[in-house]
């Protein structure tokens, strides 16, 4: 019989709410709480163990939590790993995504979870982890478990994955190979032309390769008078004071820093450097102004082309950084800009 191990948080394990959110991971034989519903829906598989971890412990001590859970799994490695459902609970979603990804990578077994579309975990993990589209809260437990376990049963019995839409999970952007009967109507040329004909006739058609449409933001109005503008510099090029006081990560950054440049005419080598791991740092370390052009901005400030330069620059690392993290970091930076009356921003990317 195939085996399954499930992951749930402190709340669903029934040990407590916020006050137990720092619970360290532990493993228990058999089913705990909602895992019973998972077991009931499984056709020919046994849930051998349930892993439990507090959401805050997972969120704030992620590396330790993941390492400990992987350790707890040694000797109990199942055929399939299931986390959640996490519904719209953000921290739980993050935890489920994190642990599914780690388990997949470490043990090369499939991992599944389920979340509401607005759970930030969806955006962060949908490309790496199969996340089923779930309800907002635990009232949808039954339905969410059914959807997820229908697929689990197929997977465990070796039936083919019919793809994200048919199975009910968020598209990962993976293309599945599918063999069609060898006839003219099935050739790519025929399918493409049919699609084009439908498009030309204004009829509905479906692309076979969906390119995700980027969210467009309205164009902010230009500054009306540059000579009064307060301009701020932001970089994703990882320029920081040499001791990297905010310990910004060299890749997949989640932290950013704001560094005082008042009184400085340029960024001096040795005082500033880049900690970006995505490019050769030689040039940026020799002259950080090639990434954060403080010298040029000072020149324009002196000429009176701009009103003044905001006395800080903001920095993070843009390699491997998720859109969700980038968005959050920008949101955290905005109040500092607003407080100083900044009217425009130059953002440099490497």
């Amino acid at each position: 019989m195939k085996t399954v191990v499930c992951y749930i948080n402190q709340f669903f394990a029934g040990i407590g709410g916020e006050e137990k959110a720092y619970q360290e991971p532990y493993i228990q034989e058999g089913c705990v709480g909602p895992v019973q519903a998972i077991q009931a829906a499984l056709e020919d598989a046994q849930v051998t163990h349930t892993l439990v971890c507090g959401d805050n412990y997972m969120g704030s001590d992620t590396e330790k939590a993941v390492a400990r859970i992987l350790e707890l799994l040694e000797g109990h490695v199942p055929d399939l790993f299931i986390a959640g459902p996490a519904f719209q609970a953000g921290r739980y979603g993050l935890a489920c995504g994190t642990i599914c990804q780690a388990v997949q990578e470490k043990f090369s077994i499939p991992a599944l979870t389920s979340m509401h579309p607005e759970n930030p975990g969806v955006e962060m993990f949908r490309q790496k982890v199969i996340i089923f589209q779930g309800g907002k809260g635990a009232v949808k437990m039954r339905a969410d478990v059914q959807t997820m376990i229908r697929f689990a049963n197929k997977l465990l019995s070796g039936q083919p994955n019919e793809g994200a839409e048919a199975e009910g999970y968020f598209p990962r952007g993976c293309r599945h190979e599918k063999f069609l009967e060898d006839k003219r109507e099935n050739t790519a040329a025929y399918r493409g032309v049919q699609m084009l004909i439908r498009k030309m006739h204004g009829q509905p058609y479906r692309t076979e390769l969906a390119i995700p449409a980027p969210e467009q933001v309205p164009i902010a109005p230009a500054v009306s008078d540059l000579s009064h503008a307060v301009v701020a510099m932001v970089t994703s090029g990882g320029i920081v004071p040499s001791d990297n006081p905010d310990r910004i990560q060299s890749a997949s950054a989640t932290r950013w820093g704001r560094y005082d440049i008042s009184g400085m005419e340029r960024l001096e080598a040795g005082v500033f450097k880049t900690i970006h791991a995505g490019f050769d740092p030689t040039a940026a370390n020799a002259d950080p102004n090639v990434v954060v052009p403080l010298d040029a901005m000072r020149a324009y400030e002196k000429e009176g082309k701009i009103g003044r330069l905001h006395p800080y620059f903001y920095s993070t690392v843009g390699t491997g950084t998720t859109e969700a993290e980038a968005r959050r970091m920008a949101q955290e930076i905005i109040p500092h800009l607003v407080a100083d009356g900044v009217t425009a921003v130059i953002l440099g990317s490497t």
Binding site: P218, P221, S236, T343, V345, L347
Partner: peptide
């Protein structure tokens, strides 16, 4: 980041 800043009303040169 550019888009978030722009959403907040700052024109951004990328």
């Amino acid at each position: 980041m550019v888009k978030e800043l722009e959403k907040a009303g700052f024109p951004v040169a990328h």
